[in-house]
């Protein structure tokens, strides 16, 4: 049972690390164009063949995850830490200020993250920075709202009362007693949003609003090769497999987190 649990959590994390840092193992330079070897079948030099410009598919696949998964995990880690701290800190204010803040929060989170992505792309054009900022901003506010609501529920539980009567201070109650109860929810939220964001980023780069001209990513690989889907199915299929594996791992991590929460409860 314990081994199975490690497997359930370890496998997705391993896949994500592979997606993120796989470019260290790339056999060829992903940018180097080899016009003599266009669209070759898999061979020893090019383990998964080459694309229409003679670039090594495997190297491009391994480099492709760097930007997408990097943006998503970096953004979400910042969001998770900061959002949790700020959400907890403001969950106590019940005065006029709190009501105002809550209305602002409600107003801002009425727009889903993917819409923010569209708005940011609309205003800033596409690029790594745009994606990173829009993801961080939209998820940050959502997470604050989640943490605030959950913390308010926890606040009325008996154990908080006990902690307060035994003399625990405000910060100790928040970070020592309440925080551990929120972790599984937060991890679940972060994982599910990561999966959504990977799909959104890849989707936008598929329709031509990618991460920039020189950045390799899976979405633009699919859009470059989907015309040749019937003659060279691999060129489309491999990037999609990688996209699929990374979103799947985020989903599995999210599921594991929510199950972990059930054990505690």
């Amino acid at each position: 049972m314990k081994l199975r649990k490690i497997f359930h959590i370890g496998c997705p994390i391993f896949i994500l690390i592979l997606c993120c840092f796989g470019y260290y193992f790339a056999p060829n330079d992903p940018h180097s164009v080899d016009m003599a070897n266009r669209l070759v079948q898999p061979c020893l030099k090019y383990p998964l063949g080459t694309d229409i410009l003679g670039r090594c598919t495997l190297s491009r696949l391994l480099y492709g995850g760097k930007a997408t998964i990097g943006i998503v995990t970096l953004g979400c880690l910042c969001v998770a830490v900061l959002g949790m701290v700020i959400g907890l800190l403001i969950s106590r204010s019940k005065d006029k200020q709190g009501v105002l803040f809550e209305s602002v929060l409600n107003a801002v989170t009425a727009i889903p993250p993917i819409a923010y992505l569209i708005i940011f792309i609309a205003a800033w054009g596409n690029g790594i920075l745009t994606m990173l900022v829009s993801i961080t901003l939209s998820l940050f506010l959502r997470l604050i709202k989640l943490v605030k609501t959950r913390a308010e529920i926890e606040m009325s539980r008996a154990y908080v009362m006990c902690a307060i009567t035994s003399g625990a201070g405000r910060l100790r109650v928040l970070f020592w007693h309440i925080l551990p109860n929120l972790v599984s929810d937060v991890v679940r939220f972060i994982c599910l949003s990561c999966a959504d964001m990977v799909l959104a980023i890849v989707g936008f780069s598929f329709i031509g609003l990618g991460l920039g001209d020189n950045v390799i990513d899976w979405g633009s690989m699919v859009s470059d090769s989907h015309q040749m889907m019937l003659s060279h199915p691999g060129l489309t299929f491999y990037p999609v497999i990688f996209i699929f594996l990374s979103t799947l791992s985020f989903h599995l991590l999210g599921r594991a987190a929510s199950k972990g929460g059930d054990y505690y409860a």
Binding site: F206, V222, L230, V240, L248, H251, L252
Partner: peptide, 23 residues
């Protein structure tokens, strides 16, 4: 259903066009 959540919608779309429309 886990596969259904994880698969990118644009891939479904191009598959749809390739197979149902062309083939």
């Amino acid at each position: 259903s886990i596969i259904g959540i994880s698969i990118p919608p644009f891939y479904l779309a191009i598959l749809f066009i390739q197979y149902f429309a062309f083939r």
